[in-house]
Simulated scan of single mutants.
Amino acid sequence: MLKANLKHKFDLFDEYWTPKIVAEFNDQYVKIAKLKGQFIWHDHENEDELFYIVKGSLLLKFRERKDIQLNEADMYVVPAGVDHLPVAEEECWVMLIEPKSTLHTGSTKNENSVAIEDQKWI
Rank of each mutant, 00 (worst) to 15 (best):
30 V>M: 15
54 V>W: 00
78 V>I: 13
59 L>Q: 15
50 L>Y: 07
107 S>Y: 06
49 E>P: 07
102 T>S: 14
10 F>W: 02
92 C>P: 05
112 N>P: 00
93 W>I: 06
70 L>W: 00
72 E>C: 08
47 E>T: 11
83 D>T: 01
8 H>D: 13
78 V>P: 02
21 I>G: 04
3 K>W: 03
86 P>Y: 05
60 L>H: 09
33 A>I: 15
88 A>W: 00
60 L>C: 07
100 K>C: 07
41 W>Y: 08
22 V>S: 02
94 V>F: 00
93 W>T: 06
100 K>Y: 04
27 D>W: 04
121 W>Q: 04
92 C>G: 08
30 V>E: 11
11 D>K: 12
49 E>I: 14
100 K>I: 13
3 K>A: 11
76 Y>V: 06
44 H>D: 05
64 E>Y: 15
69 Q>F: 04
59 L>K: 15
73 A>Q: 12
44 H>Q: 07
106 G>Y: 02
94 V>W: 00
99 P>Y: 01
34 K>W: 05
22 V>I: 14
96 L>C: 05
59 L>S: 11
91 E>C: 07
34 K>E: 04
48 D>N: 15
11 D>N: 13
32 I>M: 04
33 A>Q: 13
76 Y>A: 06
33 A>H: 06
66 K>C: 00
65 R>P: 00
29 Y>S: 05
67 D>K: 11
61 K>G: 02
36 K>Q: 15
75 M>L: 10
115 A>F: 00
75 M>S: 13
4 A>W: 06
27 D>Q: 15
37 G>C: 08
110 N>T: 03
9 K>E: 11
85 L>I: 11
82 V>H: 06
52 Y>F: 12
52 Y>V: 14
62 F>R: 09
82 V>F: 07
110 N>A: 02
122 I>G: 00
26 N>R: 07
85 L>D: 10
24 E>C: 04
93 W>E: 09
56 G>L: 08
68 I>G: 01
57 S>W: 03
51 F>Y: 15
30 V>W: 05
120 K>T: 05
73 A>P: 00
37 G>I: 11
14 D>C: 04
30 V>G: 07
25 F>Y: 15
44 H>Y: 03
65 R>T: 03
5 N>S: 13
26 N>F: 08
35 L>C: 11
38 Q>R: 10
83 D>R: 05
63 R>S: 08
46 N>R: 04
119 Q>C: 10
76 Y>G: 03
91 E>L: 05
93 W>L: 13
121 W>G: 01
56 G>F: 03
29 Y>N: 14
66 K>M: 01
30 V>T: 12
100 K>T: 12
101 S>V: 14
91 E>P: 07
10 F>D: 00
81 G>R: 03
111 E>Y: 09
119 Q>N: 04
4 A>T: 15
100 K>A: 12
9 K>Y: 14
38 Q>D: 13
85 L>V: 13
3 K>Y: 09
45 E>Q: 12
57 S>N: 14
119 Q>H: 01
15 E>W: 09
93 W>G: 02
38 Q>T: 15
